[in-house]
Design a protein around this nucleic acid. Structure first.
Length: 231
DNA sequence: CGGGTTTGACCAGCGC
DNA sequence: GCGCTGGTCAAACCCG
């Protein structure tokens, strides 16, 4: 099983990825980081989403990335603040630069009560960003994570078509824009390299996939229950 | 020839 | 209102 090192896994707010998330999870692509053992990846994944490893999705590496994200999205935030050997897996402390509050997250989660202190936490789930003035614009759910990789585009099991590239301010590396090639799927992703550390790739997914990964035809013909959570 | 990439132009949101 | 910026479009180009 190939895998990627994921230092940050959070929903994106603004330009900056908030701090203090460290973790590993198996990545269904062609990345290889020998220094990271598969055991470590599974252990961390298990800590985040214990039920995942027992599910049929665990045997389907093409689904793991999305499944993990979906699992995280449905976890109580207390669980997400758990640690593995003292290393925080995910931090939900909201960055001052990240205005997306947990309260907004809860709006998109079914039957979820967030309590009274949601304004202090970063959302990790499906969320919508509303435009205050003018026509209301709904932003698709986003998830962004930072990966140490030589390749820009991680193989996540879906097929993407590049539709734009832009040099963003204060970065020397261009940001690439991709859309899922599936007809009825409006999922997009952005890929850029971190200015401070070009070895790190920041991938931001926006939206939910309405289908299974394209490289797994069997799954698309016989979708598992867990696929209902896929983005 | 079809599908993907490149790249300059265009548009909309936002801050001043 | 204006300028800056990020995001998208679409024509041209590339490649198998």
């Amino acid at each position: 099983m190939s895998q990627a090192m994921v230092n940050h896994g959070l929903f994106e707010g603004q330009d900056q990825v908030p701090t203090v998330q460290t973790g590993f999870f198996p990545f269904p692509g062609n990345l290889s980081f020998p220094s990271l053992g598969c055991h470590q990846s599974l252990k961390t994944l298990s800590a985040i989403a214990p039920s995942l490893l027992a599910s049929e999705a665990a045997s389907n590496t093409a689904n793991l990335t999305e499944t993990l994200l979906a699992s995280v999205a449905h976890k109580p935030r207390e669980d997400l603040n758990s640690t593995l050997g003292g290393i925080p897996l995910l931090s939900l402390q909201r960055s001052s630069l990240n205005p997306w509050a947990w309260g907004e997250v809860s709006d998109c989660l079914s039957n979820r009560s967030t309590g009274g202190d949601h304004e202090h936490h970063l959302g990790v789930s499906a969320m919508k960003m509303k435009r205050i003035k003018g026509r209301r614009k709904v932003r698709e759910p986003r998830f962004c994570f930072k990966t140490m990789s030589d390749v820009d585009v991680l193989d996540d099991g879906y097929k993407w078509r590049k539709y734009g590239q832009k040099v963003v301010k204060n970065t020397q590396h261009p940001r690439s824009y991709y859309r899922c090639t599936q007809d009825n799927c409006r999922v997009k992703k952005r890929v850029e390299r971190l200015a401070e550390d070009p070895r790190m790739v920041i991938t931001t997914y926006e939206g939910r996939h309405a289908h299974s990964p394209s490289n797994d035809l069997e799954d698309s013909q016989n979708p598992s229950q867990i696929n209902n959570f896929l983005w």
